[in-house]
Simulated assay, not measured.
Amino acid sequence: MKHVMLLAAAAALSLAACEKKAATPEAAAPETAAAPEVVAPGNAAAPVNAAPAAAAGPIEPTPAAATTPNSTEALITGVTLTDLYQVQAGKIAEEKGQSPAVKEFGKSMVTDHPAMTNQMKHLFVATKVKPPTELGARGKGMIAALNAASPADFDKLYLQQQQAAQQAELDLLKGYAEGGESADIKPAAAKAVPRVQAHLDKVHELQVAMK
């Protein structure tokens, strides 16, 4: 009899446990959580994966210290990175370009862009800004895309990159010429504007010819 009572009690406890489990709905699948922002060491206010506040030309985000509109650091960073990109991209266009006009334009970028920037470099020396010496992730990605492009797609991709690059640099130079920090560098930026505008006009001309 005692054994029967123990079995009955155990069955009752088991039934109660099952009823309790049934009464508790399964937890809904949590929504996908956003990846936590990784904070840069020594700068709790600046998340590493936050979107950049501005772009230094078409190639890379500006350093945090260069986000002031028309700052000298933004100008130096922007034109230097653009030159690095233009030389590398121009050499690829000379080799992979399908039309003689694209090949010739690429060749001109290899010489014209550094020549234009060299006219300002002596002014940059007076600042304490250290120009970049190599492309960052964005610029390297653009170069990689050109290297990977098929012959049929190359000219179109190159000209698309050029349109964005030339327009961004034109905006950068115009902005600095009008309201830049350095009265010494502003005239040099203004002097470079017509040449970059001519490059952009040529890109548009080549794009129209492709249609």
Rank of each mutant, 00 (worst) to 15 (best):
E178K: 08
I59G: 04
A165T: 14
Q166R: 08
K91C: 06
V193M: 10
A46D: 12
K96P: 01
L135E: 12
H204Q: 14
P187M: 10
E73M: 02
I59S: 08
T127S: 13
K103L: 07
P52L: 05
A45F: 03
T72Q: 07
A168N: 09
A101P: 00
G180N: 02
Y85G: 04
V102R: 13
K121P: 02
G78E: 10
T82G: 13
Q197K: 01
A33G: 02
L170R: 01
P187S: 13
P132W: 10
Q207Y: 06
G179I: 04
L84T: 11
A148I: 12
P131G: 06
K174L: 12
A177L: 05
A55Y: 14
I92P: 00
T111I: 14
K107E: 15
S108P: 00
F124H: 11
G78Q: 01
A93M: 01
L75P: 00
S99R: 03
A17F: 07
L170E: 11
A9I: 15
L200P: 04
P61F: 09
K2P: 00
V196C: 10
T62M: 04
Q166K: 07
F105E: 11
T77V: 12
A115H: 04
K211H: 13
D83S: 11
A8C: 12
G136W: 05
D83F: 00
Y85W: 08
M5Q: 10
Q119R: 11
A33V: 15
K121D: 14
E37P: 00
D112C: 02
V193P: 10
M120S: 15
L6G: 02
V38R: 08
S71V: 00
L13Q: 05
G139V: 05
Q207H: 07
T117W: 03
P132E: 10
